[in-house]
C-alpha cells in the first residue's frame, strides 16, 4: 500500500502530531476537555498533517514549528467537522457518537469555537503573517462554501461551474493550504511554495471528485452511510450533473425528488441508474485530469525523497475504494 510507505516516512512526526492533538486541550475546563477529546481522539486519515510534513521537507526544518502547523490544519478540519455534524444532524462519526449526539448542539458548537481559537494560538510563534493570510482566507472560503451549499440544497439549477467552485472551497483549499503552509513554515523558495500549493489544490479537487463518485459506487458498509447520500440530502455532485445531462429519466427523477412530486422512478432507482451510467466514468476522467495536473506540478519540484511520497499519495488517492 503506497500510502503506508508515505506514512512510514513521516511516521515519527505523525506520532508527535497525534500526541500534540491529544494535549492541545489539556488543563482546560473539564467539559471543553471531555468534548474535545471525544472529537479529537476519534482518529482520521490525518491527510492534512501528512501534506504539511511532506511539503515542509522541501525547505529548512524547524520540526517543532512544523508540527504546530500540521496540528493546526488538522484542528481546523476537526472544528469544521464538529459544526458540520450539528448542521447535518449527524449521530455517528468514525464509529463514535458525534459531540452533538453525546451532549447537545451547544456543546458541539462551543467546542468547535474553542478549538478554532486554540488553533490560532498554536501559530503564535510564527512571525510570518503570510501563514495567517493563507489560513484565514481558506477558512473564510470554507465558510462561504458551506453557506452556499445550504443555499443550493435541493436546487436543480446548478452546473459544473458551481460544482467545481463548491468543492474547491469545501475540500481543495484546505489541502492546498496544507502544502503551502508546510512550505511557508519551512521557508522554501517562493517558486517551490507555489508548486506545492498547486499540487495540493489539484490533489484536493481530484480527492473530492473521487469522494463524490464513491458516494455512488461504494457499499453502505464501506461508506458508513446509505449509497447516494449526497443526492438523498439534496446535494448535486458531478456524477449527478453528468447523468442529468445524458439521461432525461435521471433529470426527471431528481426534479421530482427535489420538488416532492410523484414520478415513476423512486430516488433509489435514480441512484441505481447513476451508479451504472457513463456519468461515473466521465467524473472519474475529470478526477484523473486533476491528478495529472498534480503530477505535472510534481515533476517541476526538486528531486528528493518527499517528492516520491507526494507522488505515492496522489496514486493512492486516485485508486482508493472508500
Amino acid at each position: 500500500m503506497k500510502l503506508a510507505t508515505a506514512l512510514k516516512y513521516v511516521n515519527k512526526d505523525i506520532q508527535r502530531v497525534e500526541k500534540k492533538i491529544k494535549n492541545v486541550t489539556k488543563a482546560e475546563s473539564s467539559m471543553i476537555q471531555s468534548a474535545s477529546n471525544h472529537l479529537l481522539t476519534a482518529g482520521g486519515k490525518r491527510i492534512r498533517p501528512i501534506f504539511v510534513l511532506l511539503a515542509s521537507r522541501f525547505g529548512q526544518q524547524n520540526q517543532e514549528r512544523i508540527i504546530d502547523v500540521a496540528v493546526a490544519l488538522e484542528l481546523i478540519h476537526m472544528a469544521s467537522l464538529v459544526h458540520d455534524d450539528v448542521i447535518d444532524h449527524s449521530m455517528v462519526r468514525r464509529g463514535k457518537p458525534t459531540v452533538n449526539k453525546q451532549w447537545d448542539n451547544g456543546t458541539a458548537i462551543y467546542t468547535g469555537d474553542y478549538i478554532f481559537a486554540r488553533t490560532l494560538e498554536l501559530l503564535k510563534p510564527f512571525k510570518n503573517h503570510r501563514l495567517h493570510t493563507v489560513l484565514s482566507n481558506t477558512i473564510h472560503q470554507l465558510c462561504v462554501g458551506e453557506i452556499e451549499q445550504i443555499r443550493d440544497k435541493f436546487q436543480l439549477k446548478q452546473n459544473h461551474f458551481t460544482y467545481f467552485k463548491r468543492i474547491k472551497r469545501k475540500t481543495a483549499l484546505l489541502i492546498e493550504s496544507s502544502t503551502q503552509m508546510g512550505a511557508i513554515a519551512s521557508e522554501t523558495d517562493r517558486s517551490v511554495e507555489y508548486l506545492l500549493k498547486d499540487y495540493g489544490y489539484n490533489i484536493g479537487m481530484s480527492y473530492q471528485i473521487m469522494d463524490d463518485i464513491l458516494d455512488f459506487t461504494s457499499t453502505e458498509k464501506e461508506l458508513g452511510k446509505p449509497v447516494g447520500s449526497d443526492l438523498l440530502n439534496g446535494h448535486i455532485t458531478l456524477p449527478t450533473l453528468y447523468a442529468m445531462k445524458d439521461d432525461q429519466e435521471v433529470l426527471g427523477g431528481v426534479q421530482a425528488y427535489f420538488n416532492e412530486q410523484e414520478y415513476h422512478l423512486t430516488i433509489e432507482d435514480v441512484i441505481h441508474r447513476i451508479k451504472h451510467s457513463h456519468a461515473i466514468e466521465k467524473s472519474y476522467n475529470i478526477s484523473q485530469r486533476y491528478l495529472e495536473k498534480a503530477n505535472q506540478t510534481l515533476e517541476q519540484l526538486p528531486n528528493n525523497e518527499p517528492k516520491k511520497y507526494l507522488d505515492d499519495i496522489a496514486q493512492y488517492l486516485s485508486k482508493r475504494r472508500f
Binding site: 459544526h83 448542521i87 458548537i109 465558510c143 458551506e146 453557506i147
Partner: peptide, 9 residues
C-alpha cells in the same frame, strides 16, 4: 451555525 463561523472567519 454557518453565519457564526462566517463572521468568525
Amino acid at each position: 451555525v454557518l453565519v457564526g463561523d462566517f463572521h468568525s472567519s
